[in-house]
Design a binder for these strands. Structure first.
Ligand SMILES: [Mn+2]
Ligand SMILES: [Mn+2]
Ligand SMILES: [Mn+2]
Ligand SMILES: [Mn+2]
Lengths: 244, 244
DNA sequence: AAGTAAATTTAGGCATGCCGAAAAAATGGA
DNA sequence: TCCATTTTTTCGGCATGCCTAAATTTACTT
């Protein structure tokens, strides 16, 4: 009912669709630096390829993305700033849902996916303060600060590690809620200690030892699980990427 | 991204616009039983009259409203149920913003106006529980229960009362944020005791005594203020309306 | 009863964002 | 190099919900 701008100029004009596209472009290259193609965008957004073509043109017109025909899509500085603002909203809301409203970690994504477009900058600021300015969400994804600063922990997918490797789970992809529920029932969670034991033969599942020293368990994990679990290695600290 | 129904059938299909129209039709007759006309709807929704014509046809097609050409609009049972669900959402969210995020009572309306369409039934349920199932919002408007039950307090506009009348302010219309800010600076709030002293001559402002016995103040209030303040009379309890 | 003003509806149009089908371009293997 | 497959784009169309301008109906005055 009120036509006034509830949000910063960078956010206020953009539609929810624009916000989602930009956010997905950003998150697609957050943990691995493969540029994202239109068909990947279409898959992640649940729209047809032709819809992506049209919206990418719009993003370019808005100065949020750069794109050459038949090439991957990239964000401009402005686009990245918008993406970071959206990611911040999404992850703060997920954190709120878990910490304040008792949601399970597999229930928060869909709710946040809608709320992120609706809350005001004021809401986000006050929510962040109430939650004591958390720096990662329930799945271990980093929450950008209000000024767009992000600290990306150095981490590798569990499936990429060699036998003998030890570390801690510092991120679990929230792309698949079913996987999150599976991990819950297996009592696998953020910050758990993990050691790679070895592979079952012929490309089979990965055997890992999980849990603290007093109650370690050996568990077989399939390809999808080991790709979703990101591990920070023990030992000397690797350097961290500081995003703008 | 998820196409599943996050909400009850009564809510899930309806667009945010449909939800707003139905809610405004309901709230227009909440404190006074004048049926609402299309032009009143247009004014409250901030759209053109012709837009109302089109949407009212849609509401009728959806079975949410009944309407004869050139007549006021009324809700069906189904429409009222949807309206009550939306009013519940709106007022629970307003209460949350004030109690949990430290919003002032003049800041909550616009935020709630958008969030009400975005939160899930689950969110509403858990929010209500966290807030200890409040029965009225920061402005004194009743919050319908999850089953659609509402308890409307018996009250009259302050401007309608005769000199000598005493009571308590049990509702302050949140239609005008500026008025809410004015009342804040005058330290007039919900549940304040009030006594009508008299009218200034020639249709002037109303003189009232406001506040607790230890610190009563006499204040002049204009027409707009006295129309926004709803007073429950002292003395024998009047009967309350129980809505479905 | 007629005329005027207000409210309401109709008609035509626009913006957004989606779709499927078809065309065009890129890719990779033989 | 050429062909087949995949990816991307183009094209036409649809649904929603809004607008303005014009026509219609109603309400009010005289
Ligand atoms: Mn989203
Ligand atoms: Mn997450
Ligand atoms: Mn609304
Ligand atoms: Mn209110």
């Amino acid at each position: 009912m009120s036509p006034m701008s509830r949000n910063s100029p960078a956010l206020s004009i953009k539609s929810a669709s624009v916000q989602d596209y930009v956010k997905v472009i950003y998150t697609s290259t957050e943990w691995q630096d493969q540029r994202v193609t239109p068909s990947q965008l279409a898959a992640r957004l649940g729209v047809a390829n032709s819809s992506v073509t049209g919206m990418v043109r719009k993003l370019v017109d808005l100065g949020l993305a750069v794109h050459q025909p038949y090439q991957p899509v990239e964000l401009t500085g402005e686009g990245k700033a918008l993406a970071l603002a959206m990611v911040r909203r999404h992850r703060l809301i997920e954190t709120f849902l878990v910490q304040e409203l008792g949601y399970a970690w597999d229930e928060v994504h869909d709710e946040a996916e809608l709320l992120e477009h609706t809350v005001s900058d004021t809401f986000v600021d006050r929510l962040s303060a109430k939650l004591r300015h958390p720096t990662r969400d329930p799945h271990g994804d980093p929450i950008p600060a209000a000024d767009g600063t992000v600290r990306m922990p150095a981490a590798h997918q569990l499936g990429e590690l060699d036998p003998g490797h030890t570390g801690h789970i510092i991120r679990i992809s929230d792309a698949n809620p079913e996987l999150l529920r599976f991990l819950s029932t297996e009592e696998i969670g953020l910050d758990d200690r993990v050691e790679v034991i070895g592979h079952r033969p012929f490309g089979g599942s990965l055997v890992v030892r999980i849990g603290s020293a007093d109650r370690p368990r050996e568990i077989d994990l399939g390809q999808e699980a080991t790709a979703a679990l990101w591990v920070a290695s023990d030992g000397p600290h690797e350097n961290c990427l500081l995003g703008s």
